[in-house]
Design a protein around this nucleic acid. Structure first.
Length: 613
DNA sequence: CTAGGGTTAG
């Protein structure tokens, strides 16, 4: 590379496809010294850093420049805006004004985006007077931005007035009005404007389609879509997401296959919105694999986030681990705390607490959410001490715990049977941190107290709740009553549960089991009669395991698996082992499969497993 | 040799 010719750096900077590449070119420029003073190069570097989401780097470059021209200010402000760092953008704009730097029209349109997104319609900073003072009263770009800003603030009439008074309007002015009306729920007016336009472009058409999609009218949306002269990717995406929203995954995937080109957004829509959230995990995973195979597209943060979250809901990790973690760990995504957070969650939910912990340790950017997730992960794996010491660590680092954090902490106490600590943390949460407990916190406390034998105290806690006790709370009470064979308390809890969720078979079965254990056979018969009377259906619990890239699902009594014979054989061996190590089948009690507290949002099924033993 | 930088609507 030649070091004395700045023009040769322009094409070089343009080819920087990754942040690391940009950093090394930037480093090279710094070494060469003389180039570093060129405004044009520096501006380009600021733009590129911002585009990669590295506004902190951009700002470093910006701060080191002694004489800043309006272009540099604009680039930096815009960098913040495109990365949703609204406060930073606004403060920088204010600095610019206080130094009497004359803004460009692009500066104004960038900062107006902040006003629009934050719905600052009140002109608190004298913005609109300032625009006229700068001579932008007739600037097309600025006035278009003003329209958009008013529309986003819901000031439909102000936007209209600006629009009417503009001497010169372009297609953007019209489109801003149309989309503004659509987003303010005034489709009729949007259509009027649309019909009155002479030069419509793809944005005008898509805005109108959006209007129908918002109403859920996919028939009319489809009509417009078929009529529009040229369709770009965004238009297809709007249609696909519209079909997904109304639950028509079939048509969505038809369009998906029919569209000539698509972006990560489209894949994302189909994988996470279309399949994963509509109960078709295997289709989602299949599509994800296709994405990796066919597409040369780069993964982006939102995409990674939704794939990870889909996988963690399914508890599937192996088949996506290789693709996900190779791309994420050590890459720029890894410096996004949301990605770190969801990775921790993924590994933890899939049972790999070591890996979750490794990700946590390796991450350089951790926010309080990462701590909360890690605490909950330790707690759910029974690593009580680790959970609690991480909580202490978090406070030492001055992260403010919130309700999610405390749920993890309380859950740790629950797993460790730490009644006193549970009481203490609950008190600390409400008194010291002013966090309002949710039903989940109450459910957890009831579980801690109840299982610890303090059934009365647990009951009192429910009665003192400032919100209506949910099924999770009474469910914990019922489960605790079962542990301590307290039929009286069980009756109280069960009768509340029957009111809240009469269709849940688990409650009836649990109560009848408690009666059975107490030898109250008439009560058992009464509950069984209730089940028939209310036509309660048994929940079918299922479990699944991932082997290689295939997911094997099992339901009770299922012998359809190809290896069913061998599985049953192994099971019988395990039963023998259990007997030999002293397990005695409890004849009086109808055995219940593991009862998880329902606030842990595990399956929650409590069903009789007579067939297993 | 010069110009180059920045941008609003779905």
């Amino acid at each position: 590379m030649k070091c004395n010719d700045e023009s040769s750096y322009f094409p070089c900077l343009q080819t920087c496809k990754t942040l690391n590449r940009l950093k090394s070119v930037h480093a090279h420029l710094l070494v060469c010294g003389s180039i570093a003073s060129s405004d044009l190069i520096l501006n380009k570097i600021i733009r590129l850093y911002s585009r990669f989401g590295a506004t902190d780097y951009a700002r470093k470059v910006f701060d080191e420049i002694t004489e800043r021209n309006p272009f540099l200010w604009t680039s930096m402000i815009h960098g913040y805006v495109e990365n949703s760092q609204h406060t930073e953008a606004f403060y920088l704009f204010r600095d610019m004004r206080s130094l009497d730097v004359t803004p460009l029209n692009f500066t104004i349109s960038s900062i107006l985006k902040v006003f629009g997104r934050l719905k600052w319609s009140r002109d608190g900073e004298g913005m609109f007077g300032f625009i006229w003072k700068c001579g932008f009263g007739f600037d097309l770009i600025v006035m278009n931005s003003v329209i958009d800003c008013f529309m986003r603030c819901g000031e439909v009439d102000c936007a209209r007035q600006v629009f009417e008074e503009m001497e010169e309007k372009d297609v953007v002015s019209w489109n801003s009005m149309i989309s503004g009306y659509v987003n303010n729920g005034r489709l009729e007016i949007a259509l009027e404007l649309f019909d009155g336009m002479d030069e419509k472009n793809v944005v005008s058409w898509t805005s109108v389609i959006c209007g129908y999609v918002k109403k859920g009218d996919m028939v009319e949306a489809r009509n417009i879509f078929e009529t529009m002269p040229t369709k770009d990717m965004a238009a297809w995406n709007v249609m696909i997401s519209g079909y997904i929203d109304v639950g028509d995954v079939h048509t969505a995937s038809f369009l998906f296959r029919a569209m000539p080109h698509c972006d990560t957004g489209t894949w994302n829509l189909m994988i996470s919105g279309g399949y994963a959230k509509n109960g078709k995990p295997s289709a989602a995973l299949e599509l994800f694999k296709n994405f990796r195979k066919q597409s040369s597209l780069e993964l982006d943060e939102t995409f990674i986030l939704s794939v990870i979250s889909a996988c963690s809901q399914l508890g599937i990790v192996d088949s996506v681990e290789s693709v996900i973690s190779d791309d994420v760990v050590g890459s720029r995504y890894f410096s996004d705390s949301r990605v770190v957070n969801s990775l921790i969650d993924l590994y933890a939910k899939c049972g790999n607490i070591e890996k979750a912990s490794q990700v946590f340790e390796a991450a350089d950017k951790k926010d309080f959410c990462c701590y909360s997730t890690m605490i909950a992960a330790f707690a759910n794996h029974g690593l009580v001490e680790k959970a609690l010491s991480l909580f202490e660590d978090m406070q030492r680092k001055n992260f403010e715990p919130d309700e999610v954090t405390f749920l993890g902490v309380l859950s740790a106490c629950n797993h460790g049977g730490l009644v006193d600590e549970g009481r203490r943390y609950f008190k600390q949460m409400t008194k010291e941190f002013g966090v309002e407990p949710t039903d989940k916190h109450y459910a957890c406390m009831v579980d801690i107290l109840g299982r610890g034998g303090f059934l009365e105290e647990a009951h009192e806690m429910i009665l003192s709740m400032h919100l209506a006790p949910t099924s999770a709370v009474w469910g914990a009470m019922l489960a605790a009553s079962n542990v301590h064979r307290n039929a009286q308390m069980a009756e109280i809890a069960a009768s509340e549960l029957f009111k809240i969720e009469p269709e849940n078979s688990g409650n009836y079965i649990l109560l009848s089991n408690i009666y059975a254990a107490a030898g109250k056979w008439r009560d058992v018969a009464r509950v069984r009669a209730l089940i028939r009377e209310h036509h309660v259906k048994k929940n079918r619990g299922s479990s699944w395991i991932e082997l290689g890239s295939a997911v094997h699902e099992f339901v009770r009594g299922d012998v359809s698996h190809v290896d069913a014979d061998r599985i049953c054989f192994i099971l019988s061996l395990l039963k023998e082992d259990m007997k030999l190590s002293g397990y005695i089948k409890d004849k009086d009690l109808h055995p219940i499969s593991t009862v998880y507290p329902s606030y842990l949002s595990l399956s929650g099924d409590t069903e009789m497993d007579e067939e297993l033993f």
